[in-house]
């Protein structure tokens, strides 16, 4: 009986940790997307409003997709878009900060 109780406690603790890890705070704002996709240059930048700051573990979503035929622009285009920032929990942020070495293949890929 004691063992079962311990197992249930362990499960509850695991579930609580999992919930904490996945907890997100979502905020939205108006941003400007700058996109240039042509022979001379290819880049994409998002100017976020001042109250949105990206930290490790966060995810960012741009809500408006530009109407660009074949994915190519003529010069740089700027367009306003709502952006949604999913702020990671403290637990996820610290895990991302301290475990990046396992994602090192992202850094060492080269042309």
């Amino acid at each position: 009986m004691r063992q079962l109780g311990f197992l249930l406690l362990l499960c509850a603790a695991g579930a609580a940790l999992w919930r904490w890890y996945n907890r997100e705070t979502v905020s939205e704002g108006d941003a400007t997307v700058r996109l240039q996709s042509e022979h001379e240059h290819f880049h994409m930048h998002v100017d976020l409003p001042p109250h949105l700051e990206i930290e490790p573990g966060d995810t960012l979503q741009i809500l408006t997709l530009p109407d660009v035929p074949a994915g190519r622009t003529s010069g740089e285009i700027n367009y306003p878009s709502r952006v949604r920032l999913h702020k990671a929990s403290w637990l996820r942020r610290n895990l991302v900060m301290n475990s990046s070495i396992v994602e090192i293949n992202e850094l060492v890929e080269h042309p």
Partner: peptide, 25 residues
Amino acid sequence: ALNLTVLQTRKKYTYFQPKFIFYAT
């Protein structure tokens, strides 16, 4: 053709210590 749906997907930000970026880059 380039599919720009990358713009709409949730972009995950990975963290690397500055020195890791210097060595690897």
